[in-house]
């Protein structure tokens, strides 16, 4: 089994091998799970430290993929010890969410009960029929005792059924009232979840914003690498004039930190450059002339693969 040994080097070039991005990425990830089990079905073994969250976000660089650059940049900021102004509010919301007790709501049994006791109409009809028959029997001068008994039984049944139905309806009504409170609680959870998400977004934006200038410098530096290391002719993005490259790869909007004019992938490379990454970054595409140049530019271990 071929082995890429991260302990023996930081720059590996697999572009002439059969290994594709997915296989290499899987090898890096499975390496961290469980050595014994992963080496069995994976065609390749990569010895390296366990990839972290930043690597998960931007560690596999392919030309046409989109990347959660802001999330990744915010993560880098966290690793560097930055905090956001909403961290406390976020912790509070999460605490509230964790403490929320959610009673369940299930009225199904009670709805069914009401539906099933709904046969009073049939009994009413029976009572009416018996009354008619009883009167007819009296008119004919027959002994009405048997019919009178039957009618009495039907009336008793009807009364009982009406009582049952009423009880079932009342029980459902009470359960509905209780359910309102349970749903209030669920509504509160939804409100907290939405607030949590908004705060997370605010925190990400703020944290990513703190690294905006580092990010821009990284983009420029990667553009500058283009004059030597990035293969200028490949797909129209690179160029041999470093100024042109850095222009094209400028950060695009100060209000949306970590956005990039150009392919997302160049942004991912820029995040890799400023992030502390110890698992190898997998780079597909002709961004760099050599694995060594890539490792130097990204300041991280690198495996180059064919795009």
């Amino acid at each position: 089994m071929p082995i890429v040994d991260g302990e023996r080097g930081r720059a590996f070039d697999l572009r002439d091998s059969e290994y594709e991005v997915a296989a290499v990425a899987a090898a890096i990830r499975s390496n961290s799970d469980d050595d014994s089990d992963a080496s069995d079905d994976s065609p390749l073994t990569v010895r390296c430290p366990e990839p972290g969250e930043i690597h998960d976000h931007v560690g596999i660089v392919e030309p046409d993929r989109s990347y959660p650059l802001q999330t990744a940049l915010a993560e880098v900021a966290r690793v560097r010890g930055h905090e956001s102004s909403v961290d406390e509010a976020l912790a509070d919301v999460r605490e509230e969410l964790a403490a929320l007790d959610l009673p369940s709501v299930s009225l199904e049994a009670k709805r069914r009960q009401v539906a099933e006791t709904d046969d009073a109409a049939g009994l009413e009809e029976q009572v009416a029929t018996l009354r008619g028959e009883l009167e007819a029997a009296k008119d004919r001068g027959e002994d009405p005792a048997a019919l009178a008994d039957a009618r009495e039984r039907a009336v008793a049944d009807l009364t009982e059924r009406r009582t049952e139905r009423l009880a079932a309806e009342q029980s459902l009504e009470r359960a509905r009232t209780d359910a309102r409170e349970a749903r209030d609680r669920r509504e509160e959870r939804l409100r907290l979840q939405d607030r949590e998400r908004n705060l997370e977004r605010d925190a990400r934006r703020e944290l990513a914003g703190e690294l905006q200038s580092s990010f821009e410098r990284a983009l420029s530096a990667l553009g500058a690498c283009g004059s030597g290391a990035v293969d200028g002719a490949s797909d129209g993005y690179g160029a041999n004039d470093s100024d042109v490259v850095s222009d094209r790869y400028g950060a695009s909007d100060a209000n949306a930190p970590a956005s990039v004019d150009g392919p997302d992938a160049i942004g991912a490379l820029a995040v890799c450059r400023i992030a502390p990454i110890s698992a190898p970054v997998v780079v597909a595409g002709e961004w760099f002339a050599s694995a060594t140049a890539a490792a130097a530019a990204l300041d991280a271990p690198v495996i180059l693969v064919e795009a």
């Binding site: 749903r183 669920r186 509504e187 959870r189 939804l190 979840q193 939405d194």
Partner: peptide, 10 residues
């Protein structure tokens, strides 16, 4: 139909 969670809303 009223939903009470993010997943249900989605």
């Amino acid at each position: 139909v009223v939903t009470y969670s993010r997943a249900a809303r989605q």
